[in-house]
Write a protein that binds this DNA or RNA. Structure first.
Lengths: 219, 219, 219, 219
DNA sequence: TATGAATGAGCTTTCATTCAT
DNA sequence: AATGAATGAAAGCTCATTCAT
């Protein structure tokens, strides 16, 4: 199995679909998108509701129709990410992982990396906002990890153990292995998170990351 | 929000030394430390000058004596980090690296990692503030990298090349190697950056990181 | 300081008309009138926005809706005077002067004096504010004279020349004659400018001024 | 008699002498001069004590040694003008007038005009400050006129009456005659009051003013 | 449902004034 | 007497939020 184009387009539109599910008028959606854009560009505190209204093309009052407060808009953006998008994505991925037996740890590694990177790229604005909030609100992170780990992290551990017993993966603590995989992933994406205009080649990044991690994680 | 007095008394490293060099009165230093603490705890925008004055034990007017504006205080905190502390630390480190010939790439790697991690732990609040600002102000990062790379990055590259020619280090682009080293470093420090109360064992972290990076970077 | 509500209701002339032209809400007009009153009573610097809001019967935030700053309000008051009201008044007057052939210099003199004095009385608060500003901001005067002289001062000079050639007016430089006429006018109005409660009889003032100027300016 | 150069230098230094009389240290005098300069340039409200200290070359605390408040400095500048300098000047002038019998109303007129104009030029900064204050503080003017008229205005009226009975001066109310003389005087000085850099020729101004007033005030 | 004028709490900043040195 | 760091009241201004239309 490999994460194909269709998969990546699924993540990209999860946020939008999520919007479409709820019965939001066009103006309300415009408010949410404008907020997403401005929050990720300038930060929550440096975005005012007047500018949101301006960018959304609505009146200031309309900004408050759906979410009662400015912070409500923030939650309206982050809650789906924390509670739905991330867990759902992870579940989908792990399920496909369990169902598909990867021929080698290398293929497996490449798959995770591509999946993770694609997800990050597809949700850049939300991730940037999350980063901002996590720096000051520690409960956010706690809630997020809770939603992830409780859902299906155990399945992932099983797969890791499989490769360890197979002799393809060093016998380190799973958390340590995950830490390295995430770190290398993030190191490729960070420039784009910070500067939206910087572009990287996703494919070669995945290949490079896999190459290094494979060397570092093979016994 | 709660103002944590103990936190503000911990950061007694280069930043403090740097302060003592400048002729600041005790109250002015208190203002700077209070700002450092609150900015890193709650973020710049969610810190008001009244609370800074309160934590520093001075009047609100005193907050504005040294740095004319609130943003001036932010610069007063970040400028030394960007322009002096980071470059100085890097120079010191590289000089010691050039003078000391490490017997192996492993020793060399361990030395960098320990140095880097120690630096990050010693400057946690400033780094947290920097992170916040970098997310919205891209020029900050540009200026920082300028100060770093122009000073002595070339020396570092020479050392890397030495190990590559020696057959101890893979023949990848130096930037890629540095990226991995930094990523692994940061992955150990991140929990502490986000949650100041989470503690890690610096020594075992360095050993672990060295172990992994050595595997990944040896040809 | 006491806020005099009656005063603020008196200035119902060109300034008010000018306001009605622009699409200002009642509250915005109230802000402008309150500012006019307080600025002229106590001076710009001794008027605070809280008192403006109080006199206007609005919230403090409302004071900043139309004109973004306190100085913006000052400009909102003085700009029409400098750029519109004064030039328009002068043009109207000169046009009527050119169209109407006065039987004698005396009639002509009386007409100007009455016109000038009436204008000053009708715009007392604005003039008082202007005076204050002119004392510290010399560019204001420059801009005002530019707006006046360039518009139609030449027409006035033609009329003066006519009376000089007719033998009814001394052969002095026009600027000198105008200076005297203005000076005498102002001398009658000054007490009212300084103390709003001092009242003069406009008609007898005009007659007296005409009598003196006629003696002084007849060959 | 004519107002000679020596006379005019007497007025010019009255303010300084007044300072020297009081036991003020050099620094205290510097504070007073700096205040005089800045108050007249920028207005009382737009002058801060830091700038006064800076211009005077003293510490901020020193500004408060002599006059306990900023308003105290203003009084320290204006009180001598109102209570001493103006009355003394007027008394000196009227005494010299009474003692010297002017051969004609013309000579008399010229003498007053020159005296008045010279006085104004010699006290420009104080007059500018006075103007500012009079616009918002009506009691100031009241106190000033009280000090003037009570001292020796009556003497002046006697002289006017003399010329009226002599047939050299129209039979108008003395206050009206004084008003015109002052108005014409002020009209010559005003440009310099507003813009300190504009210079006029004092002698020709006096001759012109005399010429016009004589025509206007001769029966 | 959408509007946008109005609100007022809360923020940053200034500056006359004090006082230990 | 002179200093200048420190003060804190008060000012200008912003902006999330409300509500009559």
């Amino acid at each position: 199995m490999s994460i194909n184009k269709e998969d990546s387009e699924k993540f990209q539109t999860l946020f939008t679909e999520n919007l479409n599910d709820t019965a939001l008028s066009d103006k309300q959606k415009a408010v949410l998108f404008a907020s997403l854009t401005l929050f990720s560009q300038n930060g929550f505190d440096r975005t005012n509701t007047k500018d949101i209204a301006l960018l959304a093309g609505v009146a200031e009052g309309t900004v408050y129709k759906q979410f009662k407060t400015k912070e409500g808009i923030l939650k309206g953006i982050l809650d789906p990410v924390i509670k739905t998008i991330v867990p759902k994505t992870i579940n989908d991925f792990i399920n496909s992982m369990v169902n598909t037996s990867y021929p080698s740890f290398e293929k497996f590694l490449y798959a995770i990396i591509k999946n993770r990177m694609t997800f990050i790229f597809d949700n850049l604005p939300q991730i940037k906002i999350l980063l901002h909030e996590i720096l000051t609100d520690q409960e956010l992170l706690a809630e997020m990890t809770k939603n992830i780990s409780e859902s299906s992290a155990n399945h992932f551990l099983v797969v890791l153990k499989h490769y360890q017993e197979n002799g393809e993966l060093v016998n380190w603590e799973p958390i340590r292995i995950i830490q390295y995989i995430l770190a290398i992933n993030v190191s490729y994406v960070l420039p784009t998170i910070i500067n939206s205009h910087s572009k990287i080649n996703l494919d070669s990044a995945c290949l490079e990351a896999t190459e290094f991690l494979l060397k570092g994680l093979t016994p």
